[in-house]
Design a protein around this nucleic acid. Structure first.
Length: 295
DNA sequence: GCCCAGGCACTCA
DNA sequence: TGAGTGCCTGGG
């Protein structure tokens, strides 16, 4: 992306609103530690920071933010160097359904999140609504993360590190309303701390091997592994297939009888390295419009 | 009160 | 190997 951002006091202003919509980015189901303050104004906690992101017609503001912090952390986080225009064009060209899904929420971008936080968040996500997932994560952060006092006098909690979370017993984690997922979180802590699953090393591995590593953790199946690969490791060729995506693929492309495997195979052939992006447009579209049968 | 939600593990054929 | 079922919890 061309350099379309500049510093103004303790705010960074981004003049690139074509392929960036803060609501689409945060509410498309890829991340959970955000809060809507008002229309098009959100608070986000990531990288141990809390920031306020506002979007008006032609500009997006990040506050509080220095140019240095923006360039070292947030350009990567928001994937700002990637030209989503090209991706959207490629996907739209081959398919009217995707074209519709993309034009419905054109401002989606795939965030590059912290693998550990992403892993735990998606373990929590099974059988839960987003508000509930957010609640459990909040409890975990409050109980085991660091409390940070912001300059404006407010405070917030960081996402607990594996070491911090490992101090929790299964009972503690159940106390955070994690329910049957509590032992899964304990297992994730154990395997990560003892190096049985090396999250840093996954960056170096081919996607299929990285997936095998993630699957070693209890409570992590193909869907959650794919979500982590996509939202933390930037493996855009994966196609996380949950119930919504399954519905969409059956309704729009493959028919009711299609198996999970056929869906994966079809997505691989059709979307290739853009599978992750296609998935996210389709998912958000389907869920928002509650598409549960052929229109 | 009942049903079910952005899956997974476990069991049993 | 594949299908069926239970799971914490809270919101509709």
């Amino acid at each position: 992306m061309e350099k379309q951002y500049y510093e103004q006091g303790d705010t960074i202003i981004l003049n690139q609103t074509q392929d960036f919509h803060i609501q689409h980015i945060l509410e498309c189901g890829q991340c959970f530690r955000f809060e809507k303050i008002e229309e098009n104004v959100y608070q986000l906690i990531a990288h141990r920071k809390k920031l306020r992101i506002g979007q008006e017609k032609n500009q997006i503001t990040f506050y509080p933010m220095s140019m240095e912090e923006f360039t070292t952390l947030w350009i990567t986080y928001f994937d700002l160097e990637r030209d989503y225009g090209v991706i959207k064009q490629q996907l739209s060209q081959q398919d009217p359904i995707l074209q519709e899904a993309i034009s419905y929420k054109p401002g989606i971008r795939i965030l590059r999140q912290d693998p550990w936080e992403c892993l735990i968040s998606f373990i929590i996500s099974q059988n839960k609504r987003i508000s509930h997932i957010q609640q459990v994560i909040h409890y975990l952060c409050e109980a085991f993360g660091d409390k940070i006092n912001a300059e404006d006098g407010s405070s917030y909690y960081t996402f607990p590190t594996p070491q911090q979370l490992a101090k929790a017993t299964e009972t503690d984690i159940r106390g955070c309303k994690a329910g049957f997922r509590a032992p899964y979180i304990v297992d994730a802590c154990h395997k990560v701390i003892h190096g049985e699953v090396d999250l840093q090393n996954l960056y170096q591995l081919p996607t299929s091997q990285a997936k095998q590593e993630l699957l070693k953790i209890k409570g992590v199946g193909p869907k959650i592994a794919d979500c982590v690969l996509l939202f933390a490791y930037g493996r855009y060729e994966v196609f996380p297939t949950d119930v919504w995506i399954q519905r969409m693929m059956k309704i729009f492309y493959l028919g009711e009888e299609a198996t999970h495997q056929q869906i994966q195979q079809y997505a691989k052939e059709k979307f290739g390295n853009l599978g992750g992006f296609a998935q996210q447009y389709l998912f958000y579209y389907g869920r928002e419009k509650q598409i549960t049968k052929k229109q």
